[in-house]
Design a protein around this nucleic acid. Structure first.
Length: 439
RNA sequence: CGGAGUGUGGCUCAGUCUGGUAGAGCACCGCGUUCGGGACGCGGGGGUCGCAGGUUCGAAUCCUGCCACUCCGACCA
């Protein structure tokens, strides 16, 4: 992509409404534009990142056996009356009336609808297990939206729903999502720690929040230090029996403020291993048994021919929130530092001297070669001074900067800079292209 | 939902207390000089001062109401 033809409205100054660093950087880097409180337009650069994250989430869900579908954003109020949540949900739910005076709502979540879909088709235990997910926009009319996309009213969420015959099998489904989440966040360059979460009226130990540690996190969290650097299990695990993998990560103490028990913390973690930090919740999984299947009559026949409500769980990832979380965890004084896997472009190509024939030719050559090799490259071909180009590239945080200018070319070299470390090297253009293509 | 605050060109803000017909920097347009980490000179365009009433000869400024947004706290991917 040529920057001269792209739509990248970067801001030199920090918009006054943005308080936390990820929000400021997203606005400055031209990723989002606020349209109303907690409601954002995704500008091209932000949209690219959103799609990358969405795709990683999708791939890891599918790897864990979940099947994608897409449910609508608008739902009928009657469906929510079946579960009893229409009246319970309160002001957070955006209620809408259509021209026929039918009561509808903009979905804040989809347990009711997925249960309705499931019960319409599935009759037998032989069809289980099932895990269905979608990645869809949600709306929760937050009393106080803030922190940019981290706590918006409209947000993109992946939500998966598992259906099993009994609790033992539901636990297996839960474990698959548990591991899928570890792998998902690791692929984004994040260190996510699973922490015990409130299970509500169901009880039990099957609810975890996945927390990214960041100084600007919204909640206080407590955990054993070893959990932070524990590597993700990766894809090569026995997806039918993950209990050992899960146990390894739930054995050590980890809890959010609401669930924190200082005495237990001190008993289970030696003093040097106790970590108290700020965290951002990027995922939440839980098992809720028959909570919806029972009132909504989602039943299957077991081997004995007797019908019983299915055991369900739900599993959410805040896709749009993740962008804010990643930036919180990965930035410096000059701007965003994207982890390679989620960067909107891999390479920023900087033409140091717009109008210089030799420099222009070298840039075109590099641009064509990288594009042909399938490397996402953003080519700054604008007539602007070098300082501004560097500032822009640093701000938007692409992993690599390929800098081509007259001074280097006179000696037959270009400059290659790694955004994350600031490392620079000068080398011949061909060598730089080879390196970038291989990286 | 309680508490605090802010709305003035695209952005950051001054002007409001003490009413007199709207400013700066950045950004944008033109010309020229520049050019390896956010250049400089000259010229130019752009704002019914959040909205609606009111007071006044005269309102960005004073009064009333409304709206939007932000921050702190209680709640959530």
């Amino acid at each position: 992509m040529r920057l001269s033809r792209y739509f990248l409205p970067v801001l030199k100054e920090t918009p006054s409404e943005a308080q936390i660093v990820s929000h400021r950087l997203m606005l400055r880097a031209g990723m989002i534009r606020q349209e109303a409180a907690g409601i954002y337009a995704w500008l091209p650069l932000g949209f690219r990142v959103l799609k990358k994250i969405e795709q990683i989430v999708r791939e890891e869900q599918e790897r864990a056996g979940a099947v994608e579908l897409l449910m609508p954003t608008l739902q009928l109020a009657d469906l929510w009356r079946e579960s009893g949540r229409y009246d319970d949900y309160g002001q957070e739910m955006l209620r809408i009336t259509d021209r026929h005076e039918r009561e509808m709502l903009y979905g804040p979540t989809n347990e009711e609808m997925i249960t309705e879909i499931f019960r319409s088709y599935v009759r037998s235990y032989r069809d289980l297990p099932k895990n269905l997910f979608h990645i869809q926009w949600k709306f929760r009319d937050e009393q106080r939206p803030r922190f940019g996309v981290m706590r918006g009213r409209e947000f993109l969420m992946k939500d998966a729903y598992s259906f099993d015959l009994d609790e033992a099998n539901a636990r297996k489904a839960y474990n698959r999502m548990f591991v899928a989440y570890l792998n998902t966040f690791a692929r984004m360059g994040l260190k996510a720690v699973p922490m015990r979460a409130d299970t509500g009226p169901i009880g039990g130990d099957l609810s975890h929040e996945f927390i990214i540690l960041a100084d600007t996190g919204e909640s206080q969290v407590f955990c054993h230090k070893d959990l932070v650097d524990m590597p993700a299990p990766g894809p090569n695990v026995d997806w039918d029996d993950l209990q050992a993998v899960v146990d390894q990560r739930t054995a050590l103490y980890a809890a959010t403020e609401e669930m924190h028990d200082q005495a237990r913390f001190e008993a289970e973690a030696p003093e040097g291993a106790r970590l108290s930090a700020r965290g951002i919740e990027v995922g939440h999984i839980f098992y809720f048994g028959e909570k919806y299947s029972k009132p909504m009559k989602a039943v299957v026949a077991g081997p004995d021919g007797v019908e019983r409500p299915v055991h369900m769980g739900s599993y959410g990832v805040g896709v749009s929130r993740l962008i804010g979380a990643i930036i919180e965890a990965s930035h410096d004084e000059n701007g965003i530092v994207w982890p390679d896997q989620v960067a909107p472009f891999k390479v920023g190509l900087i033409n140091m001297r717009h109008g210089d024939e030799a420099v222009g030719a070298a840039c075109e050559q590099a641009y064509a070669a990288l594009t042909k090799a399938g490397v996402d490259v953003l080519y700054d071909d604008r007539d602007e001074r070098a300082g501004g180009k560097f500032a822009t590239m640093d701000l938007i945080g692409l992993p690599w900067q390929l800098i081509i200018g007259p001074k280097g070319l006179a000696e037959g070299v270009v400059e290659l800079k790694r955004r994350a470390t600031g490392e620079r090297e000068t080398l011949p253009l061909e060598a730089a292209l080879t390196k970038l293509t291989a990286a």
